[in-house]
Structures are given as C-alpha cells and as structure tokens.
C-alpha cells in the first residue's frame, strides 16, 4: 500500500521560503499547526535579531558600533562562537567577518544563522509524537523519522546548471542536508581569505547530523573552490556531493570510525 503523501506547509521569512512536510500521526491537527507556528516564531525571532537588512536588528547595531555584544541577546554570542569555530576548522575559508568594499572586515553572521535557526525551529517539530518531519529553509533541509527503521525522506539535490532539475537524491532518515552554490543569487559566496568568489565549483551539498554544521560546512567547502571535495573529506562524519563548474561530480564518502 502506498502511504499517503506528506501534508505540506509553506511560509516566508528572512526573504526565503520555509517548507514543511509532515507524515504520521500529527500532520493536519491542532498539535501540528501549533508546532508549525512555534517553528516559524523561532525563525521570525532570528530574523529580528540577526538580519543585516533590518537597520534596527541587534546585529546591524553591533555592526555600527552602537551596542556591544553584551547588549544583544545571548544567541548572538552563541552564533558568533559557532562562526569562530567554523573559521578555525575551515582554515579561514569560512568567516562571519567578510571583507567589505574597502577591504576591512564586516560582521556578517548570515552564513551561520540560517542553518542554526532552522535547526532550533525543528526542535518544535521533533516534539510531535509518532510524526516524521522534513523542514526546508530556502534549500537547507533538516528531517527526522519517528521510526528509526522507517521510510527515509528523499532529498533531491538541484542541478546548479538547471535549478528546476534534480541531479541526485539523498535518502535521509534523520539528519540535515545543506547546499551552497550560486544558482539563485549570483556570486555572493566568497572565500573569506580573499573576498573573491572561488573557482571551479558550482555547488557543494553536505549531509551531517546537524543543519548548523551541514550549512557551515557546505559554505566552507564551497569557499575552498578546487579543494572543496578534499576539504570535505577531512570533516568527520560528513558525506556530500560536489558539482564542479564543468558539470562533473565528486561524491564524498563519510569517514568511517
């Protein structure tokens, strides 16, 4: 018997679409709708605090030197600490300090915030008993199945050369899939060491236990350009797919313990 298709929800926040698929016991009842509203509230709060587009967000005020870190919610320090760890582990290719127009570093925690916020939002969905969820925040996906031997979610990887087509499929029971590339927004991803867009790579998809790290590692691997696959191989427990600028691909195997 074919299981019923998942129930889907879509809303927009931070200028991007948030899509949710639910299957199992709570898909369309009060519990499901309450969890979805709570998940969206997490993302809206993250937008309010971290947005670099909102003049009055704490991060914008921090950037202008109007407030100190101690004046911002504790989450800001948490995200900046994650950014520092990511910078260290990516040999500087990833940073929340990106070279500005005059070459001086400007605080931009966006590379950490999206995955981190979506993962926190997903905590509300995880709490739904006997329910599988799959949440996408603008193409960064986190999902789980209530039954560890259940039916995996099938996560398609878009073809960077044609974002309406699927290049590969990751079957995922519980975990996160994030992709970095320039298909939709042009060359906005830069190597933090040089401030320039990396060469040779079209997109990097990373599968990891947490969306925070899948997202950070996808961005960091992408910033490594021709070394993207090599660098990703050095990351424990990650697997992934690198699509090169010429359309060829490299699959990165997880490092077995």
């Amino acid at each position: 018997m074919t299981p019923p298709p998942p129930t889907r929800y879509v809303e927009h926040v931070m200028g991007m679409p948030i899509s949710l698929a639910l299957r199992g016991r709570h898909t369309d009842d009060a519990s499901a709708r309450t969890a979805w509203a709570a998940a969206m509230a997490v993302l809206q709060e993250a937008d309010r605090v971290f947005s670099t587009y909102r003049e009055n967000s704490c991060v914008s005020r921090l950037r202008r030197g109007e407030v100190g870190l101690e004046d911002c919610p504790a989450e800001v320090a948490e995200v900046l600490a994650l950014g520092e760890t990511a910078e260290r582990e990516s040999a500087g290719a990833f940073s929340v300090w990106l070279p500005g127009p005059d070459g001086r570093p400007v605080l931009d925690p966006s590379g950490v915030v999206k995955g981190w916020a979506a993962e926190r939002a997903a905590d509300h969905l995880k709490a739904l008993p006997e329910t599988d969820f799959c949440l996408s925040a603008g193409g960064d996906v986190t999902c789980a199945t209530a039954d560890p031997d259940g039916q995996p979610w099938r996560i398609g990887v878009e073809d960077p050369a044609d974002p309406r087509r699927v290049l590969a499929v990751f079957p995922v029971l519980s975990g996160a899939v994030a992709t970095s590339g320039t298909a939709h927004r042009g060359a906005h991803l830069v190597d933090a060491r040089t401030g320039r867009a990396p060469d040779g790579v079209a997109s990097v998809t990373v599968v990891a236990g947490s969306l925070t790290w899948a997202d950070v590692d996808a961005t960091a691997a992408y910033a490594h350009g021709p070394e993207a696959a090599h660098w990703l191989e050095s990351r424990p427990g990650r697997s992934g797919l690198v699509v090169w600028a010429d359309g060829t691909t490299s699959v990165v195997q997880p490092v077995l313990p």
Binding site: A21, S136, W153, I155, E158, P163, S180
Partner: peptide, 21 residues
C-alpha cells in the same frame, strides 16, 4: 525523481514561485 524536498543554493522568496520546491 520522487523526492520530498529539494536542497539547493538559497532560494529567495522572489525566486520561489519558479522553484522546484
């Protein structure tokens, strides 16, 4: 492809209508 979700470079709300997701 029988997929449930799409992972890709960040889709903006503006581009969403045209997207696979």
């Amino acid at each position: 492809a029988d997929i449930d979700m799409v992972s890709g470079a960040t889709v903006t709300s503006d581009g969403y209508v045209e997207s696979l997701q």
